[in-house]
Design a protein around this nucleic acid. Structure first.
Lengths: 114, 114
DNA sequence: TCCATTCATAACAACATGGTTATGACTTTG
DNA sequence: CAAAGTCATAACCATGTTGTTATGAATGGA
């Protein structure tokens, strides 16, 4: 129980989540799925700046991180965003404790464009 | 201006932040700084599983991501957490819009261990 | 002054990552 | 059946990452 630092399990989930989210192309794919709903690989390739195999691999990583789900229909595969997959990240944010809940609005304002 | 997906500026900040946070050692350092306050490299090395040069490099990346600040005092360098540095990540989370604010508590519960 | 402490950097090895093109499996359609 | 569309995987390259050990630059103290 001496997990003062390396909380060896939950930390692994955060590792994968943060690493997955650290790529702009993957975040763009995820954003698109969140905004537009279920999309085929073909459609996602169309809006991406990289090749179709790369899109497939990015989607594979998103799927492995449980940030998307895949549904196969005929020769097409439809991917959907899975928001709940962000839970470990949200939980990690809780290390900021009061800072988080109390200053959330402050951060929100700070984050506002104009 | 055709940044339908690659919102080329804010995205860069998220890239660096997520990439920085994707390493467990760095997250552990940051957590420690948040919980225990300002610490010297020596102290941070003591609680880390890696060598002192590696701790310095991790701290360098955290500093570059603006997640910590450094204060030099004699031969020691004291690092502090900089919570505001998380703002771009919080802002990015806003792509989930209503999902974020409305389901925040749901996610919190979901994230709860027991 | 001389030595120990503290920290950062350089050099290197091992490995992972993002990108490409080529190809194969499968499905729909003509 | 044959051809075209959709997706995933393999092979490969270039680059970046984490980790190490060795070393150098300052600072503090005997």
């Amino acid at each position: 129980m001496t997990d003062q630092l390396s909380s060896g399990d939950r930390s692994a989930a955060c590792d994968e989540l943060f690493k997955t989210l650290s790529d702009g192309t993957r975040r763009a794919l995820l954003e698109y799925l969140v905004k537009e709903g279920e999309q085929s690989v073909h459609a996602l390739t169309a809006i991406s700046a990289v090749s179709q195999p790369m899109v497939s691999r990015h989607l594979g990583k998103l799927k492995r991180a449980r940030l998307v789900t895949a549904r196969r229909a005929g020769r097409e595969t439809y991917y959907s965003a899975r928001v709940k997959g962000l839970a470990p990240v949200v939980q990690w944010m809780a290390i900021y404790g009061a800072l988080w809940s109390q200053r959330f609005t402050a951060l929100e304002e700070l984050a506002e464009p104009a």
